[in-house]
Design a protein around this nucleic acid. Sequence first.
DNA 1: CTGTTAGCGCTTTCAG
DNA 2: CTGAAAGCGCTAACAG
Lengths: 335, 335
Amino acid sequence: MATIKDVSRMANVSISTVSRVINSTAQVAPEKKVAVLAAMKELNFRPNSFAQALVSKRSNCVGVLVGDLCGGPFFAQMMRGIETVVDRADKFTIVMSGNHDEVRERHAIQALLQRQCDALILHSKALPDEELSELAAGSTPVVFINRQVPGAEDRCVWLDNQAGITTACQHLLDAGHHQIAFVTSDDEEFVDGQQRMAGYTHALARAGIEVNPALIGRAFADENGGYVAMTALLARGVPFSAVLGFNDAMVAGAISCLLERGYKIPQQVSVVGFDDIPYARYIYPKLTTVRYPIEAMGGRAAELALRLLDHKPAEGLTLKFEAELVARESVTEMA
Amino acid sequence: MATIKDVSRMANVSISTVSRVINSTAQVAPEKKVAVLAAMKELNFRPNSFAQALVSKRSNCVGVLVGDLCGGPFFAQMMRGIETVVDRADKFTIVMSGNHDEVRERHAIQALLQRQCDALILHSKALPDEELSELAAGSTPVVFINRQVPGAEDRCVWLDNQAGITTACQHLLDAGHHQIAFVTSDDEEFVDGQQRMAGYTHALARAGIEVNPALIGRAFADENGGYVAMTALLARGVPFSAVLGFNDAMVAGAISCLLERGYKIPQQVSVVGFDDIPYARYIYPKLTTVRYPIEAMGGRAAELALRLLDHKPAEGLTLKFEAELVARESVTEMA
DNA sequence: CTGTTAGCGCTTTCAG
DNA sequence: CTGAAAGCGCTAACAG
């Protein structure tokens, strides 16, 4: 790789001058500028980003902690949102997976910090609030996505889970359903789970319906879990005309289970999911769901991070997002 | 951030000694070692990776070019395979998306190179062979995944597409099907498409069946394309008892179309896909498909890259992979 | 075993 | 407008 020295030699100028044209950090005589540009092209020169980072104390990288890129399209979409805006700012994104594990999340954050990322965007599920707010107090700007860290509310981009489920549930209520089963996560510690449960309870309460515990199925929040939870629900024999799901994945599993047992969807049971994963429209029948605007949220988090690291004011950036209903074919009016 | 100097001062040793304990690059008196370790912990010292990279000419990063992390689980799984082995080697992975676009792929590779990645793993679809082999001839080790670059065969990790489709098709043939439709990509330039088409033709030929062009549906290789292609196929009115798909996504779309029109699957038409995406088992009915071992392939590519950058022999690493049949419920014997 | 020293490639004062 | 020079934090000879 050619260095700045090679360029300066070939262009017959000092390295400072080369540096100036690289960074347009000061005026340079047009003729010299031309010579430098020519030499750069000739030598196929690319400034060494490590040397730049070392001296300028800027890596031009924003580090991102995700759960698991393979767990579904969720994090991939989030990354797309982030990358789009980071890219536009001519910076890089560097990702690490925490796999929802405390030790690994901590390790990943350390690694990101050691790489001197200029800012961090964290989707941490496993780390305690204290640790996170301590991090937020450090010198590197940190923004949290999908989590409300006490004391760092102005750095948290989040979705109103409760309102989202309420929307979904209301849609079912509006269609005349009263016996609505809820298939949800079995992780009691999981804040999203609590909030969504609250949304379900809230919507029902508003409609004057009491929650029937027998209509709540819990399992791991993936397709298989949805299948398992639905199997258990069916075994209880308590009738229901609609199913609300913690997420589309669980709902896909639940639908599989229902279909296998000969239920007609939506004729016999209506179903609504949460997330609007890309496959939602290819599930049979096309899934009515509530859209998790994760890509937009990722973008917003990135904008916030960029503002913070530029010491620009971050006012005017909306941090709270809402899930909107996407009506497709898995819900029908009660007879 | 504390520097090596701070540590050396606190531990009353020279920076060289600190460097030695950091890298265990030479023996250090036990007492001093203890002192250094203590100081490092006390100061929460993390070596500046840019300084390390600058002087040692090693970034400990492997760069990866993917198509689009959001396009489905494919690249995410590939990344998981890669990250697992890169992580084990205590190195980092840095990803960029090329979005199957020539200009962006080129730009991403340049960016990766400028970041002085120690090695590159490329999933390039858009760049011409020449450009790729030129890259491979450069000083940074490059391995290609999912593409056979002439002259760099020992750096290409690939799937035998033709054999995979042949396997899938044979499964249908074995079940007694003779009229097998093929729903495939409409991109004639696309090598994978050509190879899979060849596999279809080959399997049929081997069974003494002539290919009927009216049984081939082409469209963009995603779910929507599958829907479109199937619609067109049905419109032609040529009977078929089974459908083979270019990938699971297309097949999901095709199934949607069939189901909508009241066809029973697999009773009236058997279906087999290609890829075994995670959702394959949640598609209704559970999809019989052929597994694309992309995670394993990613891992293999990473192993190869690691060997290359360590100048270790790469013999013994299998570069060619085969897709294996995963029989589920979307195929049935002909009456 | 240990300290001194010379850079890695680049940015940034500071004098001209 | 331009060049010289001083580092950024670290590793790797090279002498002790």
